[in-house]
Write a protein that binds this DNA or RNA. Sequence first.
RNA 1: GGGCCGUUAGCUCAGUUGGCUAGAGCACCUGCAUGACGCGCAGGGGGUCAGGGGUUCAAGUCCCUUACGGCCCACCA
Length: 862
Amino acid sequence: MSASPSVPDKPTLDGLEKRWAEHWESDRTYRFDRSKTRDEVYSIDTPPPTVSGSLHVGHVFSYTHTDTIARFQRMRGREVFYPMGWDDNGLPTERRVQNYFGVRCDPTLPYDPDFELPESPPKEPLPIGRKNFVELCLRLTGEDEKAFEELWRRLGLSIDWSLTYATIDARTQRISQTAFLHNLARGEAYVADAPTLWDVDFRTAVAQAELEDRERPGAYHRIRFDGGEGGIEIETTRPELLPACVALVAHPDDERYQPLFGAAATVPLFGTRVPVVAHELADPEKGSGIAMICTFGDTTDVTWWRELQLETRPVLERNGRLADVLWGTPGWETVDAVAAQDAYDQLAGLTVRQAQNKIVELLGADGALIGEPSPITHPVKFYEKGERPLEIVTSRQWYLRNGGRDDDLRQALLGRGAELRWFPDYMRGRYESWVGGLNGDWLISRQRFFGVPFPLWYRLDDDGNPDYDDPIVPDESSLPIDPSSDVPSGYTGDQRGQPGGFIGDPDVMDTWAASSLTPQIATGWIVDPDLHERTYPMDLRPQAHEIIRTWLFSTTVRAHLESNALPWRNAAISGWVLDPDRKKMSKSRGNVVTPMAMLDEYSSDAVRYWAASGRPGTDTTCKVDQMKIGRRLAIKILNASKFVLARFDDDNSLPSLDGATVTEALDASVLAALADLVDDATAAFERYDYARALERTESFFWRFCDDYLELVKGRSYGAHGPAAQQSANTALTASLSVLVRLFAPFLPFASEEVWSWWQDGSIHRASWPKAGELRTLAGDAADPAVFHTAGDVLSGLRKAKSEAKRKMRTPITVATVTDLPDRLAHLALARADVCEAGVVETLETREGSQLAVVATLAPEDA
RNA sequence: GGGCCGUUAGCUCAGUUGGCUAGAGCACCUGCAUGACGCGCAGGGGGUCAGGGGUUCAAGUCCCUUACGGCCCACCA
């Protein structure tokens, strides 16, 4: 502590971010000390933001929450391991690269090391090889990542930037491929040729976790099949799949259809003979009570097809159009191949939507359509990033066991959810309902390009057909590899694609398959065992609630399979930021404010204040009012600190707190109240309730300024002699030190600024305040009630002046305070300060049932 | 269909084991140049704690129920 603080004449928030961000960087304030051992470390599994565009205010919100926790733990003495990652692989980046550069990936093309982009983007997308495409992805994400880092530094995240990773970098690829090969060796990863949900625009399979329902218009079409007595009428929303019909199904107990079970019906237009079957998933209440099963209209069709062992008649191609079909050939038997072909040829090549219109026309002409289609709206499954409804196609895909088809594993993973500490606790329910509702294993392969390749090759037989059952696996020490350019040992490059040679697996892993390993990636599993040992398993997974079913669950799966343990102990789930007010989104006020613009306008501390006011797990609206309040709070801290410190100069130096005592009851009281605050804020932080810690601290701080500073102002300048002055100054400096440290996790810039006026080193490496030390300084007799009572009485005195519309320094000739005896006793202990602050000449007290203040003001004159 | 969260002042929200007369900020109104702060200070008005029922000496707080808002899961012919 320096003897005379250097306080600026006009404290300001302007320029603090830039100045302190540079200091923290050059001083390595947030650099992780890797000599620390696991028990001394607090490690955070930072969510890697998707790098495909820009960060929005929602990112600022949740990353601030984590940063307050990081700063709290650092001040408590833990060595905080707080890396940043970039989620740059995956579809969003691919889509952006295609649009930005005017290219498309054609994985059959070879790598062109001399490739250069044309001067201007070509009209037709330029086909380029996978490696060239990936290089463009890296170029674009590299630029975004720079902008992201700048924003995070400006916001004041206490990240150690030397630890940054990306989900496409070599380390991630090596770890992802290694983990996959372990899964494969243990039988947890397997390949299957099966119906899967398919996005026809992205032309890739998608996983259950990436689905969402959207309400879409549709229509029930009532269609008559020949069969039974007078035909069988079904209702369907997908008449275009009629050529793919393989059976009709009704509930086994449905008396209307029991006579038909085992009989055959004839599909209109196409003349296919299909069986009538029974299954309990058929709902007698729905439609006509009997449904057609197609390969495949929805996931229930898949269930029926599998459980009833029905035929397969796929009509949909992977591009979402109806395939060519030769009727009368095996699998496409019909009572009239010419008529079937005639009808079908009008559908082939059409999109689903076009085919639906056409078939309605054909059915109408045929007489098989009963009545008009009746419009409905119904939920339809979409890929969360997709634009057209998902279809179901049969394809060869990699799966990872996640409990969806194995109850023992499902129970084990539910157990992991129970073991994890959730903040807020009710978020655990989302995990449980998701795991409980899984209906299949995790489909991890994607027919895309910018991702981690499957590290596998397949042998080609003499006819050039691949053997998928016995892949060629690389040595782990050679990872990462790209099977589309690397060659398996024992082969030469010119054997690629040749009979007797090999091919590489063409797919990449789902983006979640890489990001499910962030705890391993961040801590250097297999690539940096020393770091891993010091930081894993991690302490905290902070994330938003909508990715519990994806990121949180998949990370739990990977750690459970690899290490048979949780990857972290705590999960802090943050809410979302809602649009400020849709109605007010007018052009006048430039509604879509970028985070950087908000930081510019209100200051980083102000924006952090808004973010930290959002309680854990709670969705919060983006309120600039709240930022203004934060800005005022930060300015108030500067000014109050200036007030406290400005009285100390070379002649009147800062009191040392070592061995100091306070002699005045009011001073002891405020320190005791402050000790309670420290307990409260610490307990709140320990349960990840940063919002409560902030609210309590803020609330105390305003009362501290309004009441305590006013009460001791005169005394601290010597109005009651040197001993009383010393007591005030000791309490003032101790309080300031504690309050600024309590604010440090929230307002890192203003608190660091204030700290620098009178302390050495960064406040962010200073120790978190200790209630016990405050209580020792306050002494055993200290009672927070003295401060509270004195403040209440002072308010009463002010009220008298305010109601008389007189200035606050107006003298009061006689003040009479009525109150309960014990409160009068408290008042007596602070009597001189109350009179000083209220400018009271004579103070009389009377016992009563509650506080009342009557004041006679000095006459008004010139 | 199953479950979770919420509903407190005009607005945004505190109110943790039930306990004096339900709080804060914003907005509004009235004042005030005061040894830091006018981006300030002092004060004021404003609430049937969503509705109903119950437990209790005592309920914003616990239980039941209804309504509304949001979310998760399941179903989706």
